[in-house]
Amino acid sequence: MTSYADTAAPAPPAVTGTTRQSAPSPVDGSDAPAREALLQVEDLEISFEQYDRGLRRRTVTAVRGMSLAVHPGEVVAMVGASGAGKSLLGHAVLGMLPPNARESGRVLWRGTPVGPAARRRLAGTGTALLPQSLTHLDPTATVGAQLRRAARLAGADRRTARVRAAAALREQGLAEDVLRRHPHELSGGMGRRVLTAIALMGDPALVVADEPTPGLAPASVAAVLDRLAGIARAGSGVLLITHELDAALEVADRVVVVREGRTVETTDAGAFTGDGLRLAHPYSRALWRALPGNDFEVTAC
């Protein structure tokens, strides 16, 4: 097991700053080395200690070797079946794993190894989670209260929090009266915009979007993907966790294919074309060919 230098990342979250300008700009493509990765995960392994029956313990290994890198301004899609460990990796990046989780391997933030505690401190300002479901909103608080809280956590004082909450809503194309609504008064699409506004409040350099599209009508899926692409165009990195390969290919620059807790291939999104012969791993090819628009076939791999 690797021991971590449990230090904060080079860009510590601005705790007292009241404006975004006071914090170091999260993305600085100009003077940083051109392709320095925001996030690098190397051979991550995650296992859980569980009590089986009585005091008998067992260890379940859920992630057994995942590697990926996300650079500023790009969308990286992580694609695989449910149970492959995709969401666990996302949670590990944010330092959100439960206490009985054990991990090994390395996670680097802008080139510096960061342990779980340091990653937890980065969450909200350096990294942010865009969760799948609206249940991540507090059902008892208004949208305004939740946005203001997010702004406060990102370092704003009481007055600026109010201004930033309204601005964040406008940025997502929502009217100001949404501030007074409770989550149950939002449609699915509006709720997702609110979640996006909260995630972007701390001006994160990396957004981890965990399954943002299932169950949405095609038009809403396009809207969500478009928003993710917009985040990347604005200079942040986006890690899109999804099981929907066709949706991922619409926005992703690179695709990481995972299977049973391992990354099997990292490739340019453009490699998913034709018969999939540009894909190196048989599993990636099988996934590609299984799409209803392609062969819709189950190939052994």
Partner: peptide
């Protein structure tokens, strides 16, 4: 809510 292979 399933991957392409399981769907197929």
């Amino acid at each position: 809510s399933l991957d392409a292979l399981t769907q197929a």
